[in-house]
Amino acid sequence: MDWNQNMTIVSGTIYCGDRWLGTLSSHSAAMAGLRLMRGDRDLVCSDCSPLTETDLDLLEAIDADEP
């Protein structure tokens, strides 16, 4: 997955264009996940606190997906 594409987050749902990628546990989890997967150098541990184990599993699955 190219995480640097334009993506939209609605509530906890992440879209790439009109393609639904998945729904995380919350909007803040989706924002943190997107920053994490983009390799944001300003990201600190507390920024990732909204992410659950299930969210991390979903991000891993999305990352492995090739459209």
Rank of each mutant, 00 (worst) to 15 (best):
residue 50 P to S: 00
residue 42 D to Q: 14
residue 48 C to E: 11
residue 30 A to F: 09
residue 26 S to M: 07
residue 1 M to R: 06
residue 8 T to I: 14
residue 21 L to W: 00
residue 14 I to H: 02
residue 24 L to E: 03
residue 55 D to H: 03
residue 20 W to Q: 13
residue 10 V to K: 14
residue 64 A to C: 07
residue 42 D to N: 15
residue 32 A to F: 04
residue 46 S to L: 13
residue 24 L to P: 04
residue 3 W to E: 00
residue 45 C to G: 12
residue 53 E to V: 13
residue 29 A to Y: 03
residue 9 I to W: 02
residue 2 D to A: 03
residue 63 D to E: 10
residue 60 E to V: 12
residue 53 E to R: 15
residue 60 E to G: 05
residue 66 E to G: 12
residue 17 G to M: 11
residue 28 S to C: 07
residue 38 R to E: 02
residue 36 L to H: 01
residue 51 L to E: 05
residue 12 G to H: 00
residue 48 C to S: 07
residue 23 T to K: 13
residue 11 S to Q: 11
residue 65 D to K: 15
residue 23 T to D: 06
residue 54 T to Y: 00
residue 43 L to Y: 04
residue 64 A to W: 05
residue 65 D to R: 15
residue 23 T to H: 02
residue 64 A to Y: 06
residue 7 M to F: 00
residue 62 I to K: 10
residue 65 D to Q: 15
residue 33 G to C: 04
residue 18 D to H: 10
residue 22 G to D: 05
residue 58 L to H: 05
residue 51 L to Y: 09
residue 15 Y to I: 09
residue 19 R to Q: 14
residue 59 L to P: 06
residue 25 S to E: 02
residue 37 M to H: 15
residue 3 W to P: 00
residue 49 S to L: 15
residue 27 H to R: 11
residue 23 T to A: 10
residue 9 I to G: 02
residue 38 R to H: 01
residue 56 L to M: 14
residue 12 G to A: 02
residue 67 P to L: 01
residue 35 R to Y: 10
residue 55 D to L: 11
residue 42 D to K: 14
residue 41 R to Y: 09
residue 28 S to E: 09
residue 31 M to G: 02
residue 6 N to V: 02
residue 35 R to V: 12
residue 52 T to P: 06
residue 51 L to K: 09
residue 58 L to I: 11
residue 7 M to K: 02
residue 44 V to T: 06
residue 18 D to G: 10
